[in-house]
């Protein structure tokens, strides 16, 4: 099923167990509130945890402060009903927006990505965002430390 709100910069559709939310153009508070209502309606008939949600921001151009507060509220409400969420966009400004939303909600099962492939991998996994970020950072810094240690040993 596809839901498009006329004059509103978003579209909702279901693809299997995934609900895709596409945001386009300029998103203001009224548009975000309409989306909030439509998404709640879409999720109402599904069992909690049976769906994942993918927010596609690739066609978004502006999002005002009021709209981003509503998006954070949407993300917060998804924490109780959707299994996992991902936000995709090739524009860093909106990856920052998505990061703020996921952090502010707060929802550890939500994360922003530059590509749909990365987002799909995330939607199919079950680790908390903070745990993944910490593990990746620690692992790479550990490898660098190890290499530097070996280089120092070799020089002595």
């Amino acid at each position: 099923m596809t839901t498009t709100a006329h004059r509103q910069p978003w579209e909702l559709r279901e693809e299997g167990d995934k609900i895709v939310v596409e945001l386009r153009g300029d998103l203001d508070e009224a548009g975000a509130r309409e989306l909030e209502r439509a998404l709640a309606e879409q999720l109402r008939d599904h069992a909690p945890g049976s769906r994942v949600v993918l927010f596609d921001l690739n066609q978004l151009r502006r999002c005002n402060v009021e709209a981003r507060e509503v998006l954070a509220r949407i993300q917060r409400s998804l924490g109780g009903v959707a299994r996992r969420s991902a936000w995709i966009t090739k524009r860093p400004i909106f990856r920052g927006l998505a990061l703020w939303i996921c952090h502010h909600a707060p929802d550890s099962n939500a994360r922003s990505f530059p590509s749909e492939a990365d987002a799909e991998r995330w939607l199919g996994s079950n680790e908390a965002r903070e745990a993944v970020l910490e593990r990746d950072a620690s692992s790479w810094i550990g490898r660098v430390r190890g290499r530097l240690f070996l280089a120092t040993e070799a020089a002595q």
């Binding site: 970020l133 910490e134 990746d136 950072a137 692992s139 790479w140 810094i141 490898r143 660098v144």
Partner: peptide
Amino acid sequence: KATIAYWEW
């Protein structure tokens, strides 16, 4: 890679 991963965190 460590720089990328740390600043994401």
